[in-house]
Design a protein around this nucleic acid. Structure first.
Lengths: 168, 168
DNA sequence: GCAAACCACTCTTGTTATGCAACTGGTTGT
DNA sequence: ACAACCAGTTGCATAACAAGAGTGGTTTGC
């Protein structure tokens, strides 16, 4: 748990916090899948993280103030993980990575559709989605916009592709 | 060198390519420091990468088409590494990470100034900088804009901070 | 023409991180 | 009361990473 800090460069420091193969995937699942419990994050992710790695990453994300933790009042054992403002502001990073991956890598259609929409929507859509995340994760009040939310639109698009491919 | 590919999600795939602690730093040095030779990348970086890791990462970046390699005509032993279009398009990812790190982490003033300017400049400045990179790395012609380039402005700001701090 | 410095790496040898599977101690539902 | 669920922890094997020395060659300076 010693972090010797290699340099004061912002890119380097960011990599030291979330520059591993799992942290950003956990944050992705919290953002786009609304996974908030340990068990959800463990079993519902595409990639199959193992429980010790998940526990370790959640701990460091907590330490860095990217996620927060609270008791679930409905279940004595359950805790709820939430994104903090700092965590929510990682969305543009994820969006850019997602757009780049969609353009250059071998992305499957059903998992790429969100990337496509988010990339086409641009910073304006990202800001709107971040506002929605502030509502669900921070309990912030939000001025309701007309029509379905960004989260709903992304989810609907995903379902549509899955339906067309006959996968449920 | 086997990559079992955990899922077809664009974010995951991007992380599998550049989601380690060094790849993006190498790309950063190529972009912002114009480091193009092995030795430059090895010795001029803030963080002190070791030579075997650098060799390994350059190899995988070559494999993925993010950088390219060519003989240096002026020196039989030297090769020149260049960013490809695909590599240049990682700039927005770096810019977002840089902006986030600048806002939330303990960035030093001289290394943060570029992040600040790039963040304030927004996507428009990034596009301009990417055009400059296409010129230096791909040999693309570019319609000259008036005034100093983005690269020059970033460098000048860095020098100014260093001078004020009496560090050379 | 020759030594010293430079060049792009590779090799060897640890250390650290990752990943799987089993297990713990507790809670909830029926 | 008992099975299923919950949030992790522990032990151990394997893979990735890292520091430093070494390799075979080239260029520079004198």
């Amino acid at each position: 748990m010693t972090e010797p800090q290699r340099s004061g460069c912002p890119i380097n420091l960011t990599l030291e916090v979330v520059g591993d193969k799992w942290s950003l995937l956990i944050i992705r699942d919290m953002m786009f899948g609304n996974h908030r419990h340990f068990r959800e994050l463990l079993t519902k992710s595409e990639e199959g993280i193992s429980s010790n790695i998940l526990a370790d990453r959640l701990k460091t994300l907590l330490d860095h103030g990217i996620v927060s933790w609270a008791d679930d009042p409905s279940h004595k054992q359950k805790g709820i993980y939430s994104l903090t403002e700092q965590g929510i502001e990682l969305l543009p990073v994820l969006a850019q990575m997602s757009g780049w991956g969609f353009k250059y890598l071998d992305v499957t259609e059903e998992l790429g559709i969100r990337a496509k929409l988010l990339s086409e929507g641009g910073p304006k859509m990202w800001a709107e989605f971040m506002d929605e995340l502030r509502e669900t994760h921070l309990g912030a009040k939000r001025k309701r916009k007309a029509g379905p939310s960004v989260g709903e639109r992304l989810q609907a698009a995903y379902q549509k592709v899955m339906a067309r491919k006959g996968k449920s």
